[in-house]
Design a protein around this nucleic acid. Structure first.
Lengths: 158, 158
DNA sequence: CAGGCGTGGTTCAGATTTGAACCAGTTGGA
DNA sequence: TCCAACTGGTTCAAATCTGAACCACGCCTG
């Protein structure tokens, strides 16, 4: 068995800052949304995606894919949002199995109320912490990382 | 109420790639560790931290801090690891309230077995996806982000 | 030395996530 | 036409996470 290629100091630093930033930012935004809008970050993202979609509606699988979550996880969250009146399900005309999640007016309104605070938090946590040039470097790097991972993604199990 | 400073396209792209990369990488590594070593990423990180610590032991709070998790979450995971025989608790001599988590030989061994596969996965997901220069840019940016967030962190509630 | 406050960890109930079935409908080829 | 393989979503039990209480002890001041 070959000696694995351990990380050198630069690489280790990159990895550690990636992990830390990922956790810290996630945690911070989760907090902010919960406090200010009573939404989890996942829920907020659902609203955002739907609000930008054709007819404010999107298929479950497509949505799960965008949010990088599992089918069963999304089923749960959509049920919650439906209960809260922010979203409703309707079946897909072209495929009986399919389900659309559609944003309600109330959902749109909640999103409108939540957005400014959320954007401010995103700025504070990430955007305004960096120079525009730094930000572009980060975007380029992480964009590449995402593209690659999406390409070799395992099929969803749930 | 002032119009919030919405994100421009560059900023939006940066934010989206950050979120996607964060989720995708996390998910991928979680998967790899579970499959190859039967550990969650949190558990793996506990072993890593302890293995690098003085006397292979660390205080609970310190550990929770490093892992960017909550006290109660760590309590749970340490209990799991203790059950598995990879870690044990012992009390702190200088402060009766304090608890040390200490790595067992078996824990060290499990870490040794898991590390190569994990490092390979980290390389594939992040490190080797980028040029060294890109990687340094990313590290610099995310390092700055982490530093800031750590500075203004809310006290742990759990 | 008492009293009040802060800290270190744990406990607990409730919310969420996960992956493995599972059901139903769709598709492609024999 | 028929059937096997696949896809879209849901369900379920088990694992994990979260935050609020809680307990016990350290620390500081009067």
């Amino acid at each position: 068995m070959d000696e694995p290629r351990w990380l050198n100091n630069q690489e280790k630093a990159a990895w550690i800052s990636f992990l830390a930033a990922s956790n810290l930012v996630t945690r911070r935004l989760e907090q902010q949304l919960k406090d200010d809008a009573g939404l989890s970050h996942t829920q907020y993202e659902v609203l955002v995606q739907l609000s930008a979609a054709e007819g404010r509606a999107m298929r479950m699988t497509e949505l799960a894919d965008r949010l990088v979550t599992t089918k069963s996880g999304l089923t749960y969250q959509i049920t919650q949002l439906e209960r809260a009146g922010l979203v409703f399900r309707r079946s897909c005309p072209s495929d009986v199995r399919g389900v659309f999640a559609e944003l309600t007016d109330q959902g749109m309104e909640v999103l409108r109320m939540a957005a400014p605070g959320h954007v401010a938090a995103v700025r504070e946590a990430l955007i305004d912490a960096l120079t525009p040039e730094q930000l572009n470097h980060v975007a380029a790097g992480l964009g590449e990382v995402s593209r690659r991972l999406r390409g070799t993604e395992a099929p969803d199990a749930g």
